[in-house]
């Protein structure tokens, strides 16, 4: 009789152990990746570690394609800038196509050829001086004379300026990731690319919403779920010279740092377009904000610690 009791105890132990092993509520895979010049936080609230790895690998791969210094990538942006013609990686083709589209859409406030101008400005501002007018004019002219042509898989560049897709790279990557996640049927995730581009799925709380607090307008926030957010802000990177704030975003129309607003927040469904648009409308300013709403996006613009423009019902 004692033996059967012990046997029962042993069996229940095995059952309990098996139960413990297969326990899988509260799944949370997360990792950090350094890509596109910033740290990405990838959170997946379902699926397996392999799914997380796949996403992180994709981020790293596409980052190298758009990396201006990745000399080993034969079909990437480095090759295009240095060789003038390249059989481009599909991601690069998509990025360039989007850049062309955005240039048309934003009255020229978005440009993919101001990389040299931006770099020169950041260098000068970093030393506490303004960029000399001659240099601005020269670089601006080179930028305007540079263009690309896409023919199937081949891309040809004309002109001297460097093609820089930093303004939409993260957003495009997020859009592609969303497509992958949709394909797998995943709905619970959050991917945060350096807080300037964020892809929201559902989170694990009851409502599935993530609260987003706006540092540029303290006290204002909104709830995000199943959408993409793009932020262009001076609080990331800006320079103050003689009490004037110079942002890191250069207005491609006149070659000088944009100065209309302190921050632009865009929330919608297309992460790639949002990334490009937030940069462009940071340059354009409050005047043009309603155009974004016409496109179907939620917008908020901040200046001086306050929200100066917001879509109805967007912020709380």
């Amino acid at each position: 009789m004692c033996l059967s009791k012990s046997l029962l105890l042993a069996l229940s132990t095995i059952a309990l152990s098996l139960g413990l092993f297969s326990c899988s509520h509260n799944v949370h895979h997360s990792d950090m990746v350094y890509a596109y010049g910033t740290f990405w936080e990838v959170h997946l609230y379902e699926g397996k570690d392999e799914d997380l790895d796949e996403i992180c690998d994709y981020i790293a791969e596409t980052s190298r394609v758009l990396d201006l210094e990745a000399s080993s990538v034969e079909d990437g942006l480095y090759a295009l800038n240095h060789l003038g013609q390249v059989n481009a990686h599909p991601f690069l083709i998509d990025a360039l196509s989007l850049a062309l589209e955005m240039e048309k859409l934003t009255h020229g406030a978005f440009s993919y050829t101001v990389g040299d101008l931006t770099a020169s400005w950041l260098d000068a501002l970093g030393h506490g001086v303004l960029l000399e007018e001659e240099i601005v004019v020269d670089l601006l002219q080179k930028s305007r004379q540079t263009s690309i042509k896409i023919e199937n898989e081949s891309v040809i560049k004309t002109g001297e300026a460097t093609i820089d897709l930093g303004a939409l790279g993260k957003g495009l990557c997020l859009k592609k990731i969303k497509a992958k996640l949709d394909q797998k049927g995943f709905t619970k995730y959050l991917i945060n690319a350096g807080t300037s581009s964020i892809l929201f799925g559902e989170n694990t709380s009851k409502s599935g919403e993530t609260r987003v607090e706006i540092d540029d307008a303290p006290g204002r926030y909104f709830y995000a779920k199943n959408g993409a957010l793009s932020v262009s802000s001076n609080s990331r990177q800006s320079y103050i010279i003689d009490e004037w704030t110079y942002s890191h975003i250069i207005d491609p129309r006149d070659g000088y740092p944009a100065n209309n607003v302190d921050a632009v927040l865009l929330y919608g469904d297309d992460a790639a377009k949002l990334d490009a648009l937030s940069t462009a409308y940071f340059v354009l300013g409050e005047e043009y904000a309603s155009e974004l709403e016409d496109m179907g996006y939620h917008v908020a613009m901040c200046k001086g610690g306050k929200v100066i423009y917001e879509s109805a019902g967007f912020l709380e």
Partner: peptide, 11 residues
């Protein structure tokens, strides 16, 4: 620990 499912983000 991991602060998540990330419930609050600052931008």
């Amino acid at each position: 620990r991991s602060v998540g499912g990330v419930e609050v983000i600052h931008v």
